[in-house]
């Protein structure tokens, strides 16, 4: 397992990715933007408050805003970071040489995945102290922050695996990228739209009670899951009102369904990275 995650591809990618000053400049700008956003938010809230106070519920709103901004960032950046990692090597004509080495396909794919999302992980972890400002004002527990950090990392890994999958099976980076963004768009916007439709249909009474269709779409949407972490009671109320017919927490269904997506994407990528040398006509 150690060799799987500390492999030459990953070391090389880390070297390439973090060597340039641009990476750190980008990180600095991101943290600066977050800081401006937080300071601006606090400033506006205190200006609008008659006594110039920043209340815990406002702190909570600020945290929610930041959490959704960061989720948007993750969902927007991850496909771009991962959809070119294999096809890019193919286009740069370095893949063939890499594939003739003794490195296993698993090691190459996992190395590429971890290294390509490492910058994003660094951005998120580096932004944690800024997030912690909310602790000064209350409204959010450290446990919630940790839970959201784990949720981010898990979501990055799954969306990253989708990027790697398309990068492996599609020869050209641009097509791999479009395909990955297409899937990401469906998982974010498509599921939200279908959820809304199914809720509307449910509310009209056209469907039988305890219809799980809306639940199915909700469990695939990372935005809903994040909202569920921030407002745990919201979905329970919705479920009670409409009746999903499923008692499993939404986050658990998300964990299972996205784990399945992750495993499928990674296994297929590993199998498709190198050609199957078996002669078909022998059979």
């Amino acid at each position: 397992m150690r060799n799987l995650f500390l492999n030459p591809v990953m070391n090389k990618e880390f070297k390439l990715r973090f060597r340039s000053f641009k990476s750190f400049l980008g990180l600095a700008f991101y943290l600066l933007a977050l800081t401006i956003l937080i300071v601006g938010f606090i400033y506006l809230q205190t200006q609008n408050s008659p006594m110039g106070l920043f209340r815990p519920d406002q702190s909570r709103e600020m945290f929610m805003l930041l959490a959704f901004i960061q989720l948007g960032l993750i969902l927007f950046i991850t496909p771009g970071l991962t959809a070119g990692v294999i096809s890019g090597e193919r286009e740069k004509q370095t893949l063939n040489i890499l594939l003739t080495t003794n490195q296993s396909s698993t090691s190459i794919i996992m190395g590429k995945l971890v290294s390509s999302i490492s910058f994003l992980l660094l951005m998120i972890i580096a932004s944690m102290p800024i997030y912690s400002i909310v602790f000064l004002f209350g409204g959010i527990s450290p446990g919630q922050v940790l839970l959201i950090l784990i949720f981010y990392i898990f979501t990055i890994l799954v969306f990253g695996s989708i990027g790697i999958f398309f990068s492996t099976i599609v020869r050209r980076t641009i097509i791999a990228m479009v395909s990955t963004y297409g899937v990401a768009l469906f998982l974010i916007g498509g599921t939200a739209f279908l959820f809304t439709i199914s809720m509307a249909v449910n509310s009209m009474g056209a469907m039988p009670a305890n219809n799980p269709v809306a639940y199915f779409f909700a469990m695939l949407n990372p935005g809903f899951i994040l909202f569920g972490f921030l407002e745990p009671n919201a979905f329970n109320e919705l479920s009670n009102q409409i009746g999903f017919g499923i008692d499993v927490p939404l986050w658990a269904a998300y964990l299972v369904s996205y784990s399945i997506i992750f495993i499928i994407m990674i296994v297929v990528s590993i199998r498709k990275l190198r050609p199957n040398m078996k002669v078909k006509s022998e059979a």
Partner: peptide, 24 residues
């Protein structure tokens, strides 16, 4: 194996390039 057309990792130094493949 040395292919007819190949690319290199431009941001690596010569020693690092060989070191990467050695590790591979």
């Amino acid at each position: 194996y040395m292919p007819d057309f190949f690319g290199v990792y431009d941001q690596l130094k010569t020693v690092e390039y060989l070191d990467f493949y050695g590790a591979s």
